[in-house]
Write a protein that binds this DNA or RNA. Structure first.
Lengths: 186, 186
DNA sequence: CTTCGACCTGTCACTACTGACATGTCGAAA
DNA sequence: TTTCGACATGTCAGTAGTGACAGGTCGAAG
């Protein structure tokens, strides 16, 4: 029984527990899933994941359910882990994203010439449009009734789609604003 | 002359340089500015900032332009610092946000009852609506021609506004989807 | 029967960030 | 003239995250 549960609000922990609710898996397996489905939501490196699994096991939130060839350790979520995950999902308010490099740059666009500033914003619009195309492509690819991850995964996909639409529209508008301000001064 | 410039893509560095383009300031001053204007874009703690100023000075991107009472050190950006900032703004593509705790939770909403899942989504809609109200309030407060930060700051504000609108609409839609799926099964 | 790619776990050094602690000084109001 | 709030700098231990290094094994195709 370890006395200190490690700090709250740490999402790698919950991402790992969440993936394990879909069935037991090794660190190696989980790493694939992180890359396949969570890459754009909560990426994790190999070193981080193996470390996390160790902590999770020490805290009793997962157990080594089976050992296989090549030193494979198959982890399974415990009832305590499951309770922790549900607690996090239902009772802990999500922390909003605090940092945006894209917006930070906007604050300092005044250092550039208006032309360069517009170029930056136009580029944002282009990138957002490209992302949109990729996402729409992806949406057609996803099997509508494959696995339970797909059910709520579609909601996440829709979010990303709407986000990229918003970003494109905003960037186009902002580039226009810059042009307008420029004309006003001249 | 230090041989190693510290790693690229580190935004606290550029946030600090950016703030210093508005005039010389002490660590203390900068900390206020971080809290006032960059809090929702790139927050920084005191310990981080003082450390950063030290590194920036060692790298020659800022200098101690004046020393005042209470050990006050007034930092000013150097031509090298200014060049670095412009390089970052104009030539280095911004890294997209990779992590979203909010979306991570969406992936695991299947662990909860559909009612709880809908509650989560409804809460997101509510929070987004509240944020929107605050932002609109803030928009009326901002002096339209105060300081150069305000010019591009307005673009950032508009982004936040559009983001919160998007989030609210998405969450409302998603809660509806969950209800629909629930009815489909019953 | 070899060999090679996929499988599999682990460690290390380093950077970024956080919150708390420690330590003082100046200036204005009481 | 005291005292207190704002000014001001710095350090430290700890967590999170990254990329590289290191080492080993199984299974199937050639």
């Amino acid at each position: 029984m370890s006395m200190m549960n490690y700090a709250a609000g740490v999402s790698l922990k919950h991402a790992t527990l969440g993936l394990l609710t879909y069935g037991p898996a090794s660190g190696y397996d989980l790493l694939q899933k992180f890359r396949e489905s969570l890459a754009n939501v909560w990426p994790a490196t190999q070193s981080q994941l193996y470390g996390e699994l160790g902590k999770l096991a020490a805290a009793g939130l997962v157990t080594v359910a089976a050992e296989g060839p090549r030193g494979r350790k198959e982890y399974a979520i415990t009832p305590e882990g499951s309770a922790e995950l549900r607690h996090w999902l239902g009772e802990v308010p999500p922390a909003p994203n605090r940092r945006s490099e894209m917006l930070l740059r906007v604050f300092f666009l005044g250092m550039l010439t208006p032309e360069q500033a517009r170029e930056y914003l136009d580029d944002r619009a282009t990138v957002a449009a490209e992302l949109q195309a990729e996402l729409r492509e992806l949406a057609t690819t996803v099997d509508p009734d494959s696995g339970p991850l797909a059910v709520y995964g579609r909601l996440a996909l829709e979010w990303a789609l709407r986000f990229s639409v918003m970003q494109e529209e905003w960037a186009t508008w902002a580039a226009d604003e810059v042009r307008r301000a420029q004309e006003g001064v001249e």
